[in-house]
Design a protein around this nucleic acid. Structure first.
Lengths: 338, 338
DNA sequence: GCCTGGCACTCTGCGCTGGTGAGTGCCAAC
DNA sequence: GTTGGCACTCACCAGCGCAGAGTGCCAGGC
């Protein structure tokens, strides 16, 4: 078990290293933080912290830098979440309030998060699977061709073409539209399938094929998880990474282009509360020298999607976590209003 | 006027420099291209080319590298467009054929272009202003709240909320929907305004306010140019830029995040045929050391949007132009089919 | 008049060297 | 458990010299 002072030393090391980006030595530590002990004592503590794996030296006789394990301890035990200041809160709200539609909300959120944290921001579109249906619209584009438009409570619109096995009259279409909406409007996606199962039976034999086709397209759309889109911003902040960064930045940019990787990353994060993944805790290799701070957000009490930030393991965790949490909250509010 | 051989020398310099990324000297040139003259002669030619501003030396007594002006001459006079090979064509077609909707088409196009050129790809969504209306749908979400959904011939869907000044019945809504569609379906966006001008007059006095509100929202959507979205991909290729690249890459990433800048960039390019903007020819300062190759694409004979590639001025112009042209063609075909 | 070989010159890049300074580990004393 | 002292270890930097590539110019040849 580490003594209280050793934890303070670790905290000081993390703070200084995050600030200066340079290995921090015992003397500098005692000068900048009044620990009440001499450099020699700090040296002993550092040696102990190194033995435990919380800090490391890049080279013999250089200062210490925190390891992933050290950051983990820092985040779990030593650092709080720094709340946003009132002016910051106002700025967030003002910025998000100007959004005109869902795309705009997401776009603004990404920008905001990237600016606040000066890192790469990732925002997932509100996920379909947890949303509810606001309206289903059917349009006849050709005698045997129907367009299905699904509108969700989060303002998202999905459209699909349906090829009908047989011509489908306007009357039948209106009928289907009405029945469909009376059954599914306001329902959660996951509840829809059993509700429409027996719908084809209400139609004439000749129309049943088409009704089935429409329904199966609808269900497909509902469960289609790979349609979970996301938006990324602030990649220019990657250039602040460090001096060595061709090697560092490349895999990160590649990871960011792979939506699959990112979705997985966000998906792995816990459903409730904020998740911080540090360095090698990230399954994806390219992100081994980055940390990911993510949190769910949603219109009601429940999270419908996630957003977060990708930055170097050497980041200002309290500040980043504060910004992420605040933005998630305000986005949730905005979604609830619209 | 430059002699034929001097042009050949310039071409050789560009080709070698693009290949090796290093300043090219007279001796290396004569060894790699059989110009039929000695290095000394080439040196004279190089001196002349330098006087004219087509090439430059990074330092005294280093080889030469092409200037923007040199690349311009190369692109205009010396280089053709390298056609894709049949297997490449097949690969392009196969890859694009798998797309399921417009988003997917654009996403796949970006990926494809980035892979083919190994550079940053930019694809603009088919522009609304040049498209035609396929269908306008109106949904009553609440007594005084209508959702307007606009479906275009390129498969794009736009939705807007309309707050009605007075409650609007289902009957009136259906009436408006029918009248609206009979007038504007199949029309180009630019033709729509005069066609709907007198529509409110066909309605009861109490409904006219709502009809006007719906119409003005529709017209807004049609002309709203800032809604021109685009998709970017292949940013990881920026890391291949050069050795000095923190300085180079940063402004490029920033430019890529500014959709406004990019849209302007694509907008400035000529409407027909391929446009190549080299280095300082780009108005935006951050892109002064990059070249932009862009071309319009469209479902019919007419271009509805543009796509292109952003890369270092030191790029393989014939190959890049070939890839951009080929991709634009196939995307056009795909859009025409759907 | 154009091309060519030769020559002196100019730089960049690289490896080597030595000095400086920050930081450490250890030890004996408090 | 804490402290001051001390010897030691590296990374970093500046200076040096050398090799190599490339140039410009000039005089001679076709």
């Amino acid at each position: 078990m580490l003594s209280e002072r050793r934890l303070q030393v670790l905290r000081a090391i993390v703070q200084d290293y995050v600030g200066t980006e340079e290995p921090v030595g015992s003397k500098a530590l005692t000068e900048r933080h009044n620990l009440g002990v001499s450099p020699a004592t700090v040296r002993n503590d550092m040696a102990a912290l190194e033995d435990e794996g919380f800090i490391a030296q890049p080279h013999t006789s250089a200062g210490r830098i925190p390891t992933d394990k050290g950051y983990r301890l820092f985040v779990d035990k030593l650092a709080g979440v720094k709340p946003m200041t009132p002016p910051e809160r106002r700025a967030i709200q003002n910025f998000l309030d100007g959004a005109v539609d869902l795309d705009d909300v997401v776009a603004r959120t990404v920008r905001l998060l990237a600016q606040l944290t000066r890192q790469v921001a990732v925002v997932q579109y509100p996920s379909l699977t947890r949303s509810t249906v606001r309206h289903v619209e059917l349009l006849s584009l050709a005698p045997a061709r129907v367009m299905l438009v699904l509108i969700t409570d989060t303002g998202r619109v999905e459209q699909r073409m349906v090829d009908c096995p047989a011509p489908f009259g306007e009357g039948s279409l209106a009928d289907l539209r009405a029945r469909l909406n009376s059954r599914v409007a306001g329902r959660r996606f996951s509840d829809v399938p059993p509700l429409v199962e027996d719908l084809p039976e209400a139609f004439d034999l000749e129309d049943r094929g088409t009704v089935s086709a429409v329904l199966s397209t609808l269900l497909e759309t509902l469960v289609e998880e790979n349609e979970e889109r996301l938006m990324i911003g602030g990649t220019a902040n990657l250039t602040r990474f460090g001096h060595d960064f061709p090697l560092t930045i490349r895999p990160v940019l590649e990871a960011l282009e792979e939506q699959v990787v990112l979705l997985k990353l966000l998906g792995e994060a816990g459903d409730s509360g904020m998740t911080v993944r540090i360095g090698h805790e990230n399954a994806y290799e390219g992100l081994n020298s980055t940390s990911v701070v993510s949190v769910g957000y949603g219109s009601g009490g429940e999270a419908v999607a996630k957003l977060g930030v990708v930055g170097p393991t050497r980041m200002d965790y309290p500040g980043t976590m504060g910004a992420v949490r605040a933005v998630a909250r305000y986005v949730g509010q905005i979604l609830a209003e619209s």
